[in-house]
Amino acid sequence: MSEQQPIPKRRPGGRTADSTRRLYEAVLELLATGGYEAVTFQEVAAQAEVNRSTIYRRWATRTELVFDAIESVAAASVSVPDTGDYRSDLRALLSSLKDFLSSPLGIASLAAGAEMSRTAEVPERRDAFWKARFDELAIVFTRAMEKGQLSTAFDAEVGTAMLGGALFFRIVMMAESIDDQWVERVSNQFFLMQAH
């Protein structure tokens, strides 16, 4: 009798991971081309080529789905390097944000995030989303204070709000792109504040 071959084990989450990837890609494509209003379960399902029941089983609202999709791309697109130097870290963070937010997807994601903050069906999900964004930016300041490169009197929350506000104002309010010169201007302004 020939030895029976073992049955290959199915990779855990393989099918789920693939459908999630396609769903997120569909959401982000719809955001970039039509904005937040274009993202409906019906359109996402059609573009991702999945049954709508797949979406309904995992997300109760489109807000939750969009938040998750934006988080997936933000985490992969925006890096917070640790060069050992506060000024270098801040410039690197701003450059990373510049690259992401200057793209059509980045602009659409920022606008969608602002829209969802006003209309979110799930306030706790909205709060968790923005806390994660805050933590990503604030780490540059908190790490610098821990290393003694930035005064412990520095208010990381206010600094992060100023940084985020500068990004929002430049892109959404002024409809201007973020370039290397702008990154340098913002960085220098923070360094001047530190000096005083």
Rank of each mutant, 00 (worst) to 15 (best):
M1C: 09
S2I: 14
E3A: 12
E3S: 06
Q5V: 14
P6L: 06
P6M: 06
I7W: 09
R10P: 06
R11I: 10
P12F: 10
G13V: 07
S19P: 01
T20R: 09
T20N: 10
R21D: 14
R22M: 03
L23G: 03
L23K: 10
L23H: 02
Y24P: 03
Y24G: 01
V27I: 05
L28E: 07
E29A: 12
L31S: 11
A32N: 06
T33V: 11
Y36K: 14
Y36A: 08
Y36W: 13
Y36C: 09
E37V: 13
V39E: 04
F41H: 00
F41V: 02
E43L: 03
E43W: 04
A46W: 08
Q47F: 00
Q47G: 04
A48T: 09
E49A: 12
E49L: 13
V50L: 15
N51H: 08
R52A: 08
I55A: 02
I55H: 02
Y56E: 07
Y56H: 13
T61R: 08
R62D: 12
R62P: 07
D68Y: 06
D68R: 13
I70S: 01
E71Q: 15
E71G: 12
V73Y: 10
V73N: 10
A74M: 11
A76M: 15
S77N: 07
V80Y: 07
D82V: 09
D82E: 14
D82R: 14
T83C: 01
Y86H: 15
Y86A: 15
S88V: 15
A92G: 07
L93H: 11
L94C: 12
S95P: 04
S96E: 05
L97I: 11
K98R: 15
D99A: 15
F100Y: 15
L101R: 14
L101C: 13
S102G: 15
S102L: 08
S102M: 07
S103L: 10
S103G: 11
S103N: 14
P104N: 10
A108D: 04
A108T: 09
E115F: 05
M116L: 10
M116K: 04
S117T: 08
R118P: 04
R118V: 08
R118F: 05
V122H: 07
V122M: 00
P123K: 01
E124T: 07
R125G: 03
D127V: 06
A128P: 11
W130H: 03
W130N: 08
W130D: 02
A132R: 11
A132M: 04
L137W: 01
A138F: 02
F141C: 00
A144P: 05
A144Y: 06
E146D: 08
E146C: 00
K147N: 12
G148K: 00
G148A: 00
G148M: 03
Q149E: 13
A153E: 06
F154P: 01
E157S: 00
G159H: 01
G159S: 00
T160G: 00
T160N: 01
G164E: 05
G164A: 04
G164R: 02
F168H: 06
F169S: 08
A175K: 15
S177V: 13
W182Q: 02
W182T: 05
S187H: 15
S187E: 15
Q189L: 11
F191I: 08
F191H: 06
L192C: 07
L192E: 10
M193K: 03
M193V: 07
M193F: 03
Q194T: 12
A195N: 11
A195M: 09
H196N: 05
